[in-house]
Design a binder for these strands. Structure first.
Lengths: 210, 210
DNA sequence: CCTCCTCCATACGGAACCGTATGGAGGAAC
DNA sequence: GTTCCTCCATACGGTTCCGTATGGAGGAGG
């Protein structure tokens, strides 16, 4: 994962990694069938660490709005970005593609679930979930690739406030009346592993199969 | 550019390209000093085609809101995405990095200029411009890497509507009262090449140098 | 006709990988 | 203590790329 964060999939190369770890190719090929086997193992770990774990953590928040805010904060203010960005850039790799599809489906479904609980119509919730996710992808992309373009410190806080307000705000379309504190929510375990799937309702806006 | 769109920077390889064009390495190295020289040439062309040209076109729209809408439509509904995504993924390359910085600075500055004309405070306009740009980056990223996650046709239209409403809407922060038709605008050439620079005011939210 | 210049092809050396072959060190089993 | 199993190191061949060396075809100029 460290190598992926630093150099992307190209960093997962047998000889450089062996040298870096002070061992040899012979040792590597004892533990893994080949390079792809190492990649698969890393991607399995990524699933758990970068999606399951964070959704579990965030889901402990008391209401949907707090969950979304915690999700945004957790996901923008950490060192996860390089791995996410580099894996995303390798989504054409046959081993990476399914992992990425799973991650996107689960994450957007979780966000959409929170938005529905907040009172958005399902179709609008799906749109806003994808919207939020795209913004997240673009944000970490900028953070990793062009960090000068992204504000820091207090300015970053203000920026996140603008983004969250835009995603949660009711801009002319099917949103809740004025319910930004989650008063409609009574279900405190609302999404992880059992939430609405991304393609289970009439808004045929995406066709992901988690 | 075709090779970049298909395979990213890795596709710009002398021997494969020569074979593809039915010529040889000998011929290539007559026209270009080395691989980097070809890359530089491609990036120069990219600057013009993917930023200058589109901003010129969009700037012909009569008011800022229409310009932003035209920009969003032009930029999401075309075949530019693969090149943009692959170049973005190669922003660690020493030749690509400056081009990417220039592009981000010019594009966000253009968007911010439109938002200021629409009545947003400069700092909020910068935030929303970066917000919009991040959403754009994430969107094309998803389109290229995980197309199943992105709606198509009418659903895409609805999605873009949601996004534009969120970026232009006045969600609790310094926006214009109810001025979504651009009635405050009287300047029809408002940005290309002479807009506000991204770091020319007090909101120290970014430090790009175009 | 000879020369030179432009453009291109072939052939080579080198680097960075992947994967395999082979053997050897060290401990467990009997 | 001999055997075997685990784990690892060295050495090799193969692939794909970069860049260079060299020469050759074809036309322009004298």
């Amino acid at each position: 994962m460290t190598a992926i964060g630093e150099q992307g999939l190209a960093g997962v190369a047998v000889e450089p990694l062996a040298a870096r770890l002070g061992t040899t190719k012979g040792s590597f090929y004892w533990h893994f069938a080949n390079r792809d086997a190492l990649l698969e193992a890393a991607l399995g770990s990524w699933d758990e660490t970068y999606t399951d774990a964070i959704l579990r953590t965030v889901d402990a928040e008391p209401d949907p709005a707090a969950r979304l805010r915690a999700l945004f904060v957790a996901v923008t203010a950490s060192e996860r970005a390089p791995v996410e960005v580099h894996l995303h850039a390798a989504a054409d790799h046959p081993a990476v593609a399914p992992a990425m599809r799973r991650a996107v489906a689960r994450r957007t479904a979780y966000i959409a679930t929170q938005l529905v609980t907040l009172g958005f119509e399902p179709a609008e919730a799906d749109r806003r979930a994808l919207f939020a996710y795209a913004t997240y992808i673009g944000h970490i992309q900028l953070v990793v690739r062009i960090p000068e373009a992204v504000p820091q410190g207090a300015a970053l806080e203000a920026y996140l406030g603008t983004v969250l307000a835009a995603v949660l705000g009711n801009a002319d379309s099917g949103g809740p009346a004025a319910n930004s504190t989650g008063q409609a929510d009574t279900d405190s375990s609302s999404g992880v592993g059992a939430g609405r799937s991304a393609n289970s309702e009439s808004s045929n806006s995406s066709a992901l199969s988690p």
